[in-house]
Write a protein that binds this DNA or RNA. Structure first.
Lengths: 135, 135
DNA sequence: TAATCAACCTACTCGATTAGTAGGAATATA
DNA sequence: TATATTCCTACTAATCGAGTAGGTTGATTA
């Protein structure tokens, strides 16, 4: 089973692409889709999520596209992934909308899952888009 | 998205249960299914995997069931999870049977995923069933 | 104003996976 | 032989992943 699907991975790659090709003006998704070899139509339904969460700026119409609204250092991988993936919980028990488990108090494994989740958050919170850009 | 499904989680809980109720003789799955609130029929198709990989001993017929064949310290969470889950790769690109990615050499994110994968393996390799048992 | 280019939105699809059920066969014990 | 157990295979219903499809709206420019 996978923790991160194409949604999160693609989103991340797009943000990195935007950072690497930043010229101040909007970059059309078509360009990035070509460059990254990702379906444009698929991207079109991933990007609005980031847009609505003020992660990137977007503009419709001719000359439109997307661009970053902060320096690459300010983009944490964790934020991009959780926005696009939803949760990044290692197990269903720790999902945001998980119904409360009866065995919670006596569960031998829950503390381990929690610790792993924290470790995961720390890991991806300590990596920024700037860290992932070509030097 | 989740990394670990019920298969891995149940398997782990069963092993812990076997460890906690170890008396030297075989423990029928029915007992554990009741104790853990897990479908017996479902467990019946998870356990043979562990059996075939010599992780536990099993016996059919009256008085049969399963039991551990080593001390709990020797059971690493990583081994139980990978056997039942298959891979535990954070992304498809790192799956065992992933077709080679063309962008591999230029991918900005792959090193990060690899590092995360190693961290994951370390984490679960450093936890044994003994660590998870009730003290 | 019209053409064009871009994001936006909604619906649909196809296959794989998850979390089981179901039913019986094989095996071992008393 | 009756009983208790694992073993094996097939089936299923729901969800999710990874798109495809087609049209709408918004902005620029000729």
């Amino acid at each position: 089973m996978k923790l991160v699907s194409t949604r999160g991975r693609y989103a991340l790659r797009v943000i990195i692409d935007l950072a690497e090709h930043d010229s101040g003006s909007y970059i059309p998704m078509k360009e990035i889709a070509m460059r990254q070899g990702i379906s444009l139509k698929y991207l079109e339904q991933i990007m609005p999520v980031l847009m609505k969460n003020k992660v990137i700026d977007g503009a419709s119409g001719k000359g439109g596209g997307y661009k970053l609204n902060r320096p690459p250092e300010d983009y944490k991988v964790w934020d991009i992934l959780t926005l696009t993936e939803g949760s990044l919980a290692p197990v269903a028990c720790l999902d945001c909308d998980a119904e409360k488990c009866e065995r919670e108090s006596e569960c031998r494994t829950l503390p381990m899952w929690k610790k792993y989740q924290e470790m995961t958050e720390d890991f991806f919170n300590n990596i920024s888009v700037a860290d992932l850009m070509k030097k």
